[in-house]
Design a protein around this nucleic acid. Sequence first.
RNA 1: GCGAGGAUGGUGGAAUUGGUAGACACGCAAGGUUGAGGUCCUUGUGGCCAAUAUGCGGCUGUGGGGGUUCGAGUCCCCCUCCUCGCACCA
Length: 869
Amino acid sequence: MTERKEYRFSEIEARWQKSWDEHGRFCVERHPDKPKCFVLVMFPYPSGRIHMGHVRNYTIGDVVARYKTMKGFNVLHPMGWDALGMPAETAAIERGIHPADWTWNNIATMKRQLRALGFSYDWRREVATCDPDYYRWEQKVFIEAFRKGIAYRKTSLVNWCREHGVLANEQAEGGICWRCSGPVVQKEMPAWYLKITDYADELLDGLKTLSQGWPDYVIRQQENWIGRSVGAQVRFPLEKGGEPLTIFTTRPDTLYGVTFMSIAPEHPRLAELTTPERRDEVARFVEKAARTGVRRVEQEGLAKEGVFLGSYAVNPLNGRKVPIFAANFVLMEYGTGAIMAVPAHDQRDFEFAKTCDLPIEVVINPPGQELDPASMTSAYVEEGVLVRSAAFSGMNNRSAIEAIVDHLEKEGIGSRTIHYRLRDWGISRQRYWGCPIPMIHCDQCGVVPVPDDQLPVKLPYEASFDGKGNPLDKLESFRRTTCPTCGGEARRETDTMDTFVESSWYQFRYASTDRANAMFHRSDVDYWCPVDQYIGGVEHAIMHLLYARFFTRVLRDLGYVGVDEPFTRLLTQGMVCMETYYHTEDVGDGTRVKRFHFPEDCIQEDGRWHLKDHADSPVTVGPVEKMSKSKKNVVDPERILADYGADTARLFIMSDSPPEAGLNWSEQGVKGAYRFLERIFAFAEDLAAWKATPPSAGQPSDDGLPLECRKLAHKTAKAFTADLERFSFNTAIARSRELGNFLFSKGAALAAAGQLDVVSEAFLTLVRLLHPFVPHLTSELWGLLGGTGEPSDHGWPTWDEALCVEDSLELPVTIGGRVRAKLPVPRGTAPAEVEKLALESPLVLKWTEGKTVLKVIVVPDKIINIVVK
RNA sequence: GCGAGGAUGGUGGAAUUGGUAGACACGCAAGGUUGAGGUCCUUGUGGCCAAUAUGCGGCUGUGGGGGUUCGAGUCCCCCUCCUCGCACCA
């Protein structure tokens, strides 16, 4: 046999990438006669270099895009950069690099890396959100939203460090500033908001239209996030008289069980409700609560605490006098900032009552039971029958909700109300590297938008980054301006926008290539949008997607787009994980800490792991965790490209797990993928050689092998396609391996038997099926085997349905729940006939001997189950 | 703490609607090739017990416990552990 050529992936990949680039192969235009398909992957934050999470996300997108192209769709597949955000500013503070330079450098590096992976992007449509030509349109939309009342200003609480100003939650973990370890307090500051709550009902209803294309769990989480709850506002008169205290409750059926009230520590009426003798203690509590913040009580599970204010409210239904508390878990933003507490039927109230020794009053009993407050260990929150509730006693609690609210409305004590857990979107950031909010503060004229002809408000390059407060705020040349209305001296707004704003509309920007003078063109958006398939990380399941859905509706209401929903179908991909390598070290005071190592610094010898250069430094192989720099369990995609090539990286990342699940990186798995490609390459070489010089015809093959080969190829095409349609990439690849394994072991025999056409057809089917996954190698082999152009010029493989069905089946027969026999029958045999054959079968007789056949269940063409006794 | 999801061999996973659990791959083992191997090929591989069993030897097995069903990895209830999100990270 002649010596085989080596699989030189780097040569092949570079050549095809160059060809695609030069021919503008992935540049697309509107095409009225072709069905369109917009495949969008979540654009990356340009943090420096791409990581495996990106490779996974973008490979999934590329496989979908290339598959849809082969299916005949006009596919839009763009890429861009979510380029504004905190890390650029952190780099400026810590390393003295300007955020703009840092970002643009990172973009250049990452773009080069993405190109090396062979993704089919139309790079003409690239966007970078830090480009003033991008964010100017956001400023324009903001001003229009402001004029419509969708954007507004109000005060809100922020994390505040005396030294470093406003901090993000992640910079204020544990109530401590990440830079100076100083205390972080909650401080009131004015901030800009977008009125997402006005769209709450629409965003909720819209989820119904998405149920076909979005994962259920994302829809459920969005529903819960919006948190629409129907309940009642109830006015509790105060014992001392005056304005009653209004609370919101979703459980008016428990009104007779109220034993105390709680209000948020920042409730405007706190001082008024506090008696003079309680003032000091309450002040201490409020101060402490401000230091902690409600968020940490909720998220970090801190103790729920409260303080008695000294005054009382009166239950409007039963006249009971109940104490009023301030509590650190009551949110001012939700409802009215005040709640009625029913410890018997609300778990949080129950815990609070137990710690503060407050009474518990049962007003709902489980059917046929009677609860005793003294022996309860948790609140009873299920349905039941009302007791001790005056005229409502004896009613089912569900109907009591309606009856009691009717009563409240009739008596003028309360009313039906709907509240949302969703709060308005606070978009102000006291940071430099964001889109400037285009507003001007004038002492005479108030808050005035920047006039259209002065847009964009560009970020000034000259700014100093010392980590202490907002650089824009300290830059006089930026701050000082004149009022567009009166011409007087005025101050520019120095807040920038939340970077979630840019990622709320980038999908529309991609639709147009000609956008020097427009955000995008309506005709382009009308053709390409909405996005047919959106693909990105699970971590964005709530916020990004909700904001983008909201912003799309804002753009719709401002006349920019004609769609309600931006993303028709959604695929959420899991994270890329890897085992950790570490050793533990004593830090002196007896506590041991983990010191992590990069996997490439560790080596296994004689079954033990140790550091490469120090055989006496043992290393523990830890659990598989999400790849992260801090744990050092990262693999640089570029190294994988150098060692194995883009096709191998793409194939492995798609073959080892379903896309929604986490993917465990495995170097061995990568090698397995590489081996498969090598074998494909080698087989193609063989096949080309056979074609050039047909092997001398041996014995004609009449053993059914050619038919088996054809059937397998057609069945594989069918199943592979079905798998792609449901994004089951890993099983699709498994099927392609089965076809490959068959050809590798039987191909030569078939060729020798004069069945070269059969082998060739099957192999070319394999090449075409794999093309979206391994585009470089398959394009190469397609040409080698005499195909014109590339596999994608020839559409998606089809199959002959007749070759996909088996006419004879082997039905499993289970007796007493165990498979005891296999019954050969033709497909479609009538159940009665199957039953007869089964009961006559010797093996079945062996197992039913001495027993009574009670029942025979025949599932046609599937299984036979015999129930015996 | 609240909301959402998950758990199947030594490992990643497969089983599309309740119908043969473990496809495909990794690893491992044996044999062959190479005779440098991080190469290649063949065979085997859930566990336990058997030892060629008159047609496929038996038992057991999908995080733990209970239930529904002729039949449960799949449906229901309880528990444990893991992951994601929680509004200024993106």
